[in-house]
Design a binder for these strands. Sequence first.
DNA 1: GTCTATACGAAGATAGAC
DNA 2: GTCTATCTTCGTATAGAC
Lengths: 180, 180
Amino acid sequence: MAVTPLRERTRREIEQQAIVLFSDKGYLATSLQDIATAAGCSKATVLYHFTSKAAVLASVLEQPSALLAALLDEASQLPPAEAQERTINGFVDLGVQFRGLLNVLNEVIPSVLEIPELEGLVAAGDRLARLLAGSDDPEQIAMAEFAIHGLLGACRVEHLQYTEEQLRNLCVKATRRLLT
Amino acid sequence: MAVTPLRERTRREIEQQAIVLFSDKGYLATSLQDIATAAGCSKATVLYHFTSKAAVLASVLEQPSALLAALLDEASQLPPAEAQERTINGFVDLGVQFRGLLNVLNEVIPSVLEIPELEGLVAAGDRLARLLAGSDDPEQIAMAEFAIHGLLGACRVEHLQYTEEQLRNLCVKATRRLLT
DNA sequence: GTCTATACGAAGATAGAC
DNA sequence: GTCTATCTTCGTATAGAC
């Protein structure tokens, strides 16, 4: 148990290489052959460990998804005002931390409904908007969604010209302006 | 001249069907075969009129691109304060009018640098951010970019639940909050 | 000039040998 | 568990009918 079983080694290597390639070239521009070559195995081996290319993506997004879900669960149990505060800071932190993968997220959103493995993320997006909004006012929720898209776009495009700290401050400031 | 030449009929039909398909399923999920079938011709005919799939996209985006460029040219010649005002309203109008295609734009952005036909749009994005910002302050420009991404996302995701008027008001309000 | 027919390489995915 | 071989469909290219 202390030692990684052999059966998991290849799978992990595939996932790690996929993270690098997806962050670098994007999901669609990365082929199964690219992943296989980087991981030192064949295309068929990738599809043995993951049932499809979308399944590789889902696996790559598993950790950030879980962290987002945990944040939402935690914030849900706070009083409304604190919940909004916690959600803003936590979401910006997640966005900055996983900015390489946000690139991928944005890329895939248009067809996200056709990737069953990513349904959980869609649902999380709805919960996130409601918590950010801090109320059930439709306009406030729309502002929250505007903020989410702004953040995804900002982290994607500018992840090279700003430090993590600058990006975090910018996103928090913009989100507050939208939700006040 | 009053009558549409035959040579243009097929081309127009292809473009119209491409707009519908791109708006509905997205660019990447639409194949040349889909376009050809919808237009009532063969794949090769599509590629006779347009040199590649990317060229079809470029043609589809030609009108909104031209309108955006015209808006930026017009706003550039106004004094700073009016320029910002004009750019906000004009850009929101364009976003709402072509919201079906914004879907496509978002989808293609990650790899936009690899589609030569779309270089003009990238440059326009930079000009747009500077005009929206109304100054050369980097933070203000970052806010403008945040607003652009928010708008693209909002128009894309919510283009079914809101009327054009509601969407326009929402986007103007959000953009003002970010840029004030 | 306008189109159909056909072919090529690469993609995601599956079947079966080892 | 990993491979090779194979299937289908994609985007693209070209030859040639009308």
